[in-house]
Design a protein around this nucleic acid. Sequence first.
DNA 1: TTGAAAGCGATACCAA
DNA 2: TTGGTATCGCTTTCAA
Lengths: 339, 339
Amino acid sequence: MATIIDVAQQAGVSVKTVSRVLNNESNVREKTAERVRAAMKALDYTPSTAARELRSGRSRSIGMLFSDPSSGFQARLHHAALTACSDAGYFLAAGIFDETAENWRRQLAEFLARTRVDNMVLVPPLCDSDDLLQELVDHEVATVLISPSHAPEGAHVVRMDDYGAAREITDHLLALGHTRLGHLTGPKGHVASADRERGFLDAIRADGRAQVREDWIRPGLFRFKEAVAAAESMLGGVDRPTAIFAANDETAAAVCFAAGRMGLRVPDDLSVAGFDDAPIATTVWPPLTTIAQPFDAMAEAMVTLIGETPLQGEARWCGKTLTLPHALRPRASTSAPAS
Amino acid sequence: MATIIDVAQQAGVSVKTVSRVLNNESNVREKTAERVRAAMKALDYTPSTAARELRSGRSRSIGMLFSDPSSGFQARLHHAALTACSDAGYFLAAGIFDETAENWRRQLAEFLARTRVDNMVLVPPLCDSDDLLQELVDHEVATVLISPSHAPEGAHVVRMDDYGAAREITDHLLALGHTRLGHLTGPKGHVASADRERGFLDAIRADGRAQVREDWIRPGLFRFKEAVAAAESMLGGVDRPTAIFAANDETAAAVCFAAGRMGLRVPDDLSVAGFDDAPIATTVWPPLTTIAQPFDAMAEAMVTLIGETPLQGEARWCGKTLTLPHALRPRASTSAPAS
DNA sequence: TTGAAAGCGATACCAA
DNA sequence: TTGGTATCGCTTTCAA
């Protein structure tokens, strides 16, 4: 494997000049830089990460902590982060972290010592732990929070607009002609699903034609079983909604399940919309109309933010908030109501 | 952060001795080693990965390539690998790899150059690409294959016993008293699901009481929609199975869905069993009886194998095959048939 | 704008 | 069983 010395010889310059080109330092004549780049390509040169890290003290790794990597949300974010890091030449150092463990501070210290990252990404629900963030600040680790409930000082935030997305998907149902709309909410205390409920309500009120029916807003709690029960009680009588928006895709699938059990066909007799564009949205039949969270864009934004964050100084702790655009995915589970 | 020199001074020995302790070399007097370990603990010393990698040329990273990280199987393996690596002090360098891309060789070379791993783990379906394995051998990268269709020369294999697991879950249904058993197969060419079908058939034949009914063995193809159709045609007549074993959990969920639509209750009117213990197995209601793949054990085995693999020499290419025990997870979706 | 030399923190080789 | 010293590939410092 070629080293920086080989490149320097090939290009007829000093190693320092090669290093300058490698780090995009400005004070290199363009012609020289060109020659160096050609030499790199000719020798198929890749700089040694180990050597760079050793000497510079800074690592090309970004830390990412998961509390429950089997959760679909975290897994998808993980994947997106992997891709984004790989594209930007970073390394993703993922770790499992148990925030409820007695010795979590020690766990964290070990992770930091082993990986030597100086940037960290926290995904829900870890991103809402102020203690954890404080500990990271104490370790001088700059942090990006993904979709936190609130935006604390001293951390960057990357999020999507749950409220706006919920309005949009509700508007989609209204535009199809539905005026009898039900909603399955998420768990209490889950800020994103509170936003989704608000979006649902505001969309209906803004539209004017439909009415908010308190008994058609029920807890789905993000759980299949509870959602089936809620949907069944909502769909039981003759006076029932023609469309239901569930706060996530699992509970939307549960609505389809309940509808099937009651002899209602989706979407002919009942339109169903979900949220997240989780794998289940396209495994069930019919596939679910839903909101795709901008995982890829979030991951890219996070890498960009980290790239812009200086290694030290005041500016390191100036948090920015980025809100990324989601996408409505209309699929076969929603259609105009039967007249 | 403390360095090896600090530790050496604190312990009153040379750096080389500290290095020996660090690497568990045998030729250190136990008393000296003890003193060194005490010094390490006192100084809260963590060796610099960068320096170790730079000097030794070997990396503490294990590469893992995914073709589709959103697949549940790959995601769960990824998680398990993450935990196992973290426990064993390795780093997991995960990468997205597109085996169908024109320039896959270049992709691979870049991954290897950037990560400098000398051990790689391949998960399905990548683990069945002989070209990829050959390329890794050419790059001197020792490889562990997870659940490959066949065991090629020059790679370790870690797998589970799909055939035995299918027999076991079928025996579970037989033991409950079912004699009318249906099966939803996976896609053609998917070796694991062919094994599952064989296990199903052999269990029935060995039992003797039940009979194999060709028309109760239908393609589920691992897809919800197809599985719903297959289940509906199987359950349509009065002459229908009292239990169905689906080759994975998604299609087992589809069977529940179809049953609900036809007014059959699970498990009272129909027992349903799946395979994989995927998230959907516990999201749907009732939760599915299924087979848990030994992801954690596989990941640990993979790390152990890699730890035992020498860095060079003939022994590096002697493949071992490890078959790990699965677990039957009896849940509410199966019960004795109504008499 | 460019280069020479020192050194990051560990391991390897050879010597004691 | 132990220690001294060169060295891995790069960045940093200082000088030209």
